[in-house]
């Protein structure tokens, strides 16, 4: 958790901005899984990143894996896209730390 803050504050990476730009369209600006793409016709809803119950099931490795390689990496839906070709390694690391803050887990 603390390392999340350090990554955010120490580096030039603005992780909140990155989350808002790439993830909020589905996961919502506050991370509650209620972004504009959360439509009734979707097969699954985006994960509520503030849910400790859901998010604590994932190890750090799994979170990194799912951001880099998409939902399929953890046996979930491909509605969660792969960002490995979009984001830098440090940005994915910072996002993982940020998610840990959001769920406080």
């Amino acid at each position: 958790m603390l390392s999340g803050f350090l990554t955010v504050e120490a580096g030039t990476i603005n992780v909140k901005q990155i989350y808002r730009f790439y993830c909020a369209q589905c996961h919502g600006t506050e991370g509650r899984g209620d972004g504009i793409n959360d439509r009734p016709e979707m097969p699954v809803s985006p994960r509520d990143h503030t849910s400790r119950a859901e998010m604590s099931k994932l190890t750090d490795e799994e979170i990194l894996d799912v951001i880099n390689n998409g939902g399929e990496a953890t046996g979930k839906s491909t509605v969660m896209p792969a960002f490995g070709k979009t984001l830098k390694v440090e940005e994915v690391e910072a996002l993982k730390a940020y998610l840990r803050e959001l769920c406080d887990c």
Binding site: Q25, G35, I36, N37, E41, M42, T78, V79, P81
Partner: peptide, 20 residues
């Protein structure tokens, strides 16, 4: 790739898909 997650398409006359 579930491209429809962010893009509307017409599927059998119904328009479906995400809005971003």
């Amino acid at each position: 790739f579930s491209c429809y997650a962010c893009h509307k398409i017409k599927n059998r006359k119904k328009v479906l898909g995400g809005l971003s």
